[in-house]
């Protein structure tokens, strides 16, 4: 009497479902992360206080010196695109902190036992951080207007610049998703981030033109993605010959996501 008894057989996923699942589950996780952001507002406040201090410092302390080296562009107009890029780059650390936190609390274990898309925990986090960046960049734009920043090149180009900033922030979030999964705890993620991010942001054209940097540093500064993105955003917002800057910036974003998203999902699958 060994005939197989009818036990519940798992339903097979239809193809449509398999294609939609990453989006559907990613949005569910993103919604969850945004609730946390709303409920713990200090996360948002601390990530906006620092860039505001930066704007005020650079604008009023270094503005005079740097402004003299710029030809016909007021420093605040030069500075703000750089600040936008800096804000989203530093903000990307939040992606690492959030994922490392989920690893630590055991929530990641639960997610991995659920019938959800393998990419959703990561894409949900990077998507929530994208939404967070929309808020932060809008806020910084307001702060910029208060200290003399103005739209010079029309609203569409200005908004396009904003989108380019957000795209770069999204790409950096995937880098830090990998960092968060690799280091596994929020404190280490924070500590590991600064030595990498500081040179990326400061050895760039974000706050000052690269022309006065030593030659070897210029080579790095002129070709790294923060400079490329800041340059493209600046041209869009202030005006001037665009060239291929926007495409270069988008190529960086696409390249970063193409490398780090699969790497992140691979780490997630095998994270212990």
């Amino acid at each position: 009497m060994t005939t197989a008894t009818p036990l519940e057989q798992p339903r097979e996923q239809p193809t449509v479902d398999r294609l939609l699942a990453p989006v559907r589950d990613g949005l569910a996780v993103a919604g969850r992360n945004l609730i946390a952001l709303r409920r713990v507002p200090r996360l948002l406040i601390f990530s906006t206080v620092q860039p505001i201090v930066f704007v005020l410092m650079f604008r009023y302390v270094f503005g005079g010196v740097v402004g003299a080296a710029l030809h016909g562009v007021s420093y605040v107009d030069y500075l703000m695109p750089g600040v936008f890029v800096q804000v989203v780059v530093f903000g990307a650390v939040n992606t690492a902190i959030g994922l490392a936190g989920d690893l630590q609390t055991g929530l990641m274990e639960r997610f991995r036992s659920l019938p959800m898309a393998r990419s959703a925990v990561l894409s949900g986090r990077t998507t929530a951080d994208l939404a967070r960046n929309v808020f932060v960049v809008a806020l910084m734009t307001g702060v910029g207007f208060l200290v003399g920043f103005r739209i010079h090149n029309g609203v569409p180009a200005f908004l396009a610049g904003g989108l380019l900033v957000l795209a770069f922030g999204f790409a950096m979030s995937w880098v830090f998703a990998v960092v968060g999964l690799a280091v596994g705890d929020p404190e280490t993620a924070t500590a590991a981030a600064f030595p990498v991010l500081a040179p990326l942001v400061f050895a760039s054209s974000a706050f000052v033109p690269t022309a006065t940097m030593p030659g070897w540093l210029q080579v790095f500064a002129d070709h790294q993605p923060v400079t490329i993105t800041a340059g493209a955003v600046r041209t869009l917002m202030i005006g001037g010959p665009l060239g291929t800057q926007v495409w270069q910036a988008l190529a960086w974003d696409a390249g970063i996501v193409a490398v780090f998203a699969p790497l992140g999902v691979w780490l997630y699958r095998r994270a212990v």
């Binding site: 339903r11 409920r39 713990v40 609390t105 055991g106 274990e109 639960r110 036992s113 019938p115």
Partner: peptide, 20 residues
């Protein structure tokens, strides 16, 4: 993926989101 549709797991530490 099929197994995940059949199971529930409660782990050693309460794996719930503290902010929700």
């Amino acid at each position: 993926a099929a197994v995940r549709r059949l199971i529930g797991l409660a782990g050693q530490y309460a794996a719930v989101d503290p902010n929700l």
